[in-house]
Write a protein that binds this DNA or RNA. Structure first.
Length: 654
RNA sequence: GGCGGAGUGGCUCAGAUGGCUAGAGCAUUCGGUUCAUACCCGGAGGGUCAUCGGUUCGAAUCCGAUCUCCGCUACCA
């Protein structure tokens, strides 16, 4: 019998700091899918782990005064602890510092180099001498080092590059012919329009500026930069071997059915990673899902906002399954979800305590009360039962359909529809009335059987999402049949068995009390503000009318007359001109986006108004030390701001 | 600047290929019930489907313009 396989992965967590609930969500989401596939009968392999190399980690360790290895050991341990207490059922936890991983990455790198897909070139970046660090243009803010705030210098270092352009066409074809490859689909457009259509630049895959990484075997001083190291975990975790026969896991499970990743790293997984695989002649994963983010109130979780929430704290106050339920349920397929304590409490009360918990509780209580806990045969059916039984039988298929689309929240909704229907069934049949007449005993037994069976089907399905609770429920109703086949028929509850003790699954939470328990200060803060505040903030942001300023503000801007003494096109940008402008005794280089309106030749000799105290900035690799004033209309016509008559360059404009 | 997405009751969202009185959950309110965790069930209120114009017998759904928000991206300075 060849069982169908299913290989699913999370992104590996970066071990610079402890993961928060948003990071944890990814593991829980992946776990729910993995568990569901197992339930359906797939042979599932669920891989997760940690990404442990890089400069950031090296620096962090330095600050803490420990070795990078000690630092990543600590964080990786925390990650694993969190994944464990959240009940994620991973089959393997890979670390990029694992010896086998490192060796395989080196082999991959070597092979790509040998076959010409990786070549040596030089990498231009900005260097901060005190920090001994390189930064890319986009990492910089205001031309200073993002770590220490000191100025940076442009430098270049030797580096290896992966030839992306070679595979660009093939990747484009793949994406076009496999519409399911990138999910959600809107992300596909972003990748295609922003990167593939405009052509890919080769990717820098090594560094010499730090050494906490996998060394390049054939060139001392170079370490393999994040991409080839981290992304490879998906195949090294299965014992892939680039030089020969791969291990049995690889042969069995690859290609991956889905990589579950955050929407922020889709680019790496849908462009760089497939190209690496193409270069290695390995099949591509079937699907990459960029899941949305969990927001705290209206904001992204971040240390600087001081709103970071950790799974551990939530679990302490609400329990694992309430937290799992919440993050899985509040996250629509493609839209960011919101976490607040109020919402978490509300969902726990209404969905878990009221609808689910109370249903199980009242049902088990009735079986205990009316039949001493013995499950009766469903011998006296009535037509009214069909609505319940039909829905119960349809539910597994419905849930499976949603799960196949990765719409986890909707899959759970389908289960709750059945739970609600079950509650309604109790009202329709009024077991407590049946119990009063001896003649109705058989009917009563049937009603309770139907309820137990509906609960059993629900609980089996719930095992993918809230496994601990599901198993408690199955214990309480003493279900012995718990597999996929058993929920395709309405006969899985065993007549004659005894139900267990009715215990409360989720206690109702008093909101105020709980908020105070969590944090007296936070209770106030979180109570009713998040929304309003944010809306106000947003409205204030774009001032409709430009604010009036005083002369003291205006005088901050220094403008002078400058004469263009030379001008040429930007070597690497077709919208920009690079002018040498004489301002008094000084000559400055200024880059401006006016190539569409002026030829370099006609610029020379013009006397323009120049802002001279702007921070210098690098535009597409060329330094610009000021700004030329110009007028432009809505149609895009542009005219330079000049002075009326002849006046010496360097004259101040005011 | 470019590309894309979105704007539906207090909140979170559903609403292929245009068609009965625009739906669900939560919240609110009224009623019922007592097996159960002050729970469950039923009813009700509440929406100019962002705005303006157009196509059509008929549009939340198609077209155009506008406004707002969001995402990605850039050779804005």
């Amino acid at each position: 019998m060849s069982q169908k396989t299913y290989y699913i992965t999370t992104a590996i967590a970066y071990t610079s700091k402890t993961p928060h609930i948003g990071n944890t969500y990814e593991a829980v989401l992946t776990d729910a899918i993995a568990r569901f596939k197992r339930l359906e009968g797939y042979d599932v392999f669920f891989l997760t782990g940690t990404d442990e190399h890089g400069q950031k980690i090296q620096l962090q360790a330095q600050e803490e005064g420990i070795t990078p290895q000690a630092h990543v050991d600590k964080i990786a341990g925390e990650v694993r602890d969190i994944w464990d207490f959240m009940n994620t059922s991973y089959d393997k936890f890979i670390r990029t510092t694992d010896e086998e991983h490192e060796k395989t990455v080196q082999k991959i790198f070597k092979r790509l180099y040998d076959q010409g897909d990786i070549y040596k070139g030089s990498y231009e970046g900005w260097y901060c001498t005190p920090c001994e660090s390189f930064f890319t243009e986009s990492q910089l803010e205001e031309n200073v080092c993002p770590d220490c705030g000191r100025p940076v210098q442009k430098t270049s270092e030797e580096a290896y590059f992966l030839k992306l352009s070679k595979y660009e066409k093939r990747l484009m074809d793949h994406i076009e012919t496999h519409p399911e490859f990138i999910q959600p689909e809107s992300r596909k457009n972003e990748m295609v329009n922003n990167f593939l259509k405009s052509g890919l630049q080769d990717l820098c895959v090594s560094r010499t500026s730090f050494d906490w990484g996998v060394p390049v075997t054939f060139d001392e001083g170079h370490v393999i930069y994040v991409w080839i190291d981290a992304l490879s975990n998906y195949i090294t975790g299965l014992n892939y071997n680039p030089e020969g026969e791969s291990g049995p896991l690889f042969n069995k499970y690859w290609p991956a059915d889905v990589h579950i990743i955050g929407k922020d790293i889709l680019r790496f997984h849908t462009i760089y990673w497939p190209i690496m695989l193409m270069a290695l002649n390995v099949p591509l994963p079937k699907q990459v899902f960029g899941h949305p983010w969990l927001m705290v109130g209206q904001d992204k979780m971040s240390k600087s906002l001081g709103n970071v929430v950790y799974a551990e704290d939530l679990v302490k106050h609400f329990g694992v399954d309430a937290v799992r339920y919440f993050v899985l349920h509040e996250m629509p397929f493609a839209q960011d979800g919101t976490l607040t304590y109020e919402l978490l409490i509300a969902r726990t009360n209404s969905d878990l305590a009221n609808i689910l918990g109370n249903l199980v509780n009242r049902t088990v209580a009735m079986v205990t009360k009316y039949f001493d806990g013995v499950i009766q045969p469903p011998t006296k059916a009535e037509t009214i039962d069909h609505e319940l039984t039909d829905l119960a039988l349809k539910t597994p298929g419905k849930v499976a359909e949603k799960m196949d689309q990765l719409k986890v929240a909707e899959a759970m909704d389908a289960i709750w529809t059945l739970l609600r229907r079950s509650n309604k069934y109790i009202d329709e049949t009024c077991p407590w009335i049946l119990a009063k007449e001896e003649a109705q005993k058989e009917r009563l037994g049937t009603v309770l059987y139907n309820l137990l069976e509906s609960i059993r089907i629900s609980a089996v399905l719930l095992s993918a999402f809230i496994p601990e609770t599901a198993s408690k429920i199955l214990d309480q109703i003493n279900a012995t049949k718990k597999d996929w086949a058993s929920i395709q028929t309405f006969t899985g509850t065993v007549v004659g068995d005894h139900v267990g003790v009715a215990e409360v699954l989720f206690a109702r939470i008093d909101e105020k009390q709980k908020l105070i328990e969590i944090n007296p200060a936070m209770a106030e803060e979180l109570e009713d503000q998040p929304k309003k505040q944010k809306q106000q903030k947003k409205k204030e942001k774009p001032p409709v009318i430009v604010e009036e300023i005083g002369i003291e503000d205006f005088s901050k801007v220094v403008m002078k007359v400058g004469e263009v003494i030379a001008c040429e096109k930007h070597p690497d940008a077709n919208k920009l001109l690079v002018s040498q402008i004489k301002i008094g005794e000084e000559v400055r280089q200024i880059v401006s986006g006016i190539a569409h309106a002026y030829e370099p030749a006609e610029m020379v000799g013009k006397k323009l108004i120049v802002v001279t105290n702007l921070k210098p900035v690098n535009l597409r690799g060329v330094l610009s030390e000021g700004m030329i004033l110009a007028a432009s209309d809505q149609a895009g016509h542009l005219k330079l701001g000049t002075v009326d008559g002849d006046i010496a360059s360097g004259s101040e404009v005011r």
